[in-house]
């Protein structure tokens, strides 16, 4: 999404702070895939994959891949102790029954009410929504990880989304390379600004009104 690798890692590192030991978490495609690298193994976080795994582990060493263990994107993965395999109705049953503590997902646009647009890339063909809407609606906490602006330099956090919505009012927290923003009943609350960006920069590049937290942190 136009971010340098160190910035993507920075977002993933910050995102990992939202995870606590013992949680069950779904990681979407893109920056969310990096979050697992920042979570200690001993926390026993269970990573969920919609293709039917709870307990996804790290990427296998070359030559040690199992052709029947992959993530939802088809990349080879391993499993951790306590993992299970199951069919697709069970994979989504876990989601629908709100067993997932958090879903980390990428986004094209988010608006001030937490509406999410992440399934149709402008100018490209319709690919179908896959499992995006169900994760967004049913995960206990939905955390968007994305670049603050798009490749044209336009804000991705907007008063209104212009792209087709994946899900309405579902986003709880937005983490970008520039800021951490909570979606509250009263609107968007800026809680952290990431070095080297400034408060002014974040406000200028955000397309929706921001409330500034009394405890605003400037993160080095």
């Amino acid at each position: 999404m136009g971010l340098e690798m160190d910035q993507r890692n920075m977002v993933a590192w910050r995102a990992a702070k939202e995870v606590a030991p013992g949680m069950a978490v779904n990681l979407g495609i893109g920056i969310p895939e990096l979050v697992a690298d920042f979570i200690p193994h001993e926390w026993q976080v269970m990573f969920h994959s919609v293709n039917g795994i709870l307990g996804v582990g790290p990427t296998p060493l070359k030559g040690e891949e199992d052709q029947h263990i992959s993530n939802a994107g088809g990349a080879p993965v391993t499993v951790v102790p306590g993992a299970s395999y199951f069919d697709s109705t069970i994979a989504y049953g876990m989601i629908r029954r709100k067993k997932l503590d958090a879903a980390f997902i990428g986004a094209l646009q988010v608006n001030r009410r937490g509406d999410l647009a992440n399934w149709i890339v402008p100018g490209s063909r319709v690919h179908g929504i896959g499992g995006g809407a169900e994760l967004a609606y049913y995960a206990k906490k939905v955390i968007v990880l994305m670049s603050h602006v798009n490749q044209a330099g336009e804000p991705k956090i907007r008063r209104e989304c212009t792209l087709p919505l994946t899900a309405k009012g579902c986003v709880d927290l937005i983490i970008t390379e520039r800021a951490v923003i909570e979606v509250t009943q009263r609107g968007l609350l800026l809680t952290e600004v990431m070095y080297p960006y400034t408060l002014e920069n974040v406000i200028t590049h955000t397309g929706a009104p921001l409330m500034i937290s009394e405890n605003l942190q400037m993160v080095e």
Binding site: V50, D87, S88, T89, A91, Y92, G93, I95, R96, R125, V126, H127, G128, I129, G130, G131, A133, E134
Partner: peptide, 21 residues
């Protein structure tokens, strides 16, 4: 996607969990 655009392939989409169910 190409065949869908050209009208050769009729595609119906469904959210994944609903589809499985």
């Amino acid at each position: 996607g190409q065949q869908m655009m050209e009208g050769k392939l009729e595609v119906t989409f469904c959210p994944q969990g609903i589809f499985a169910e």
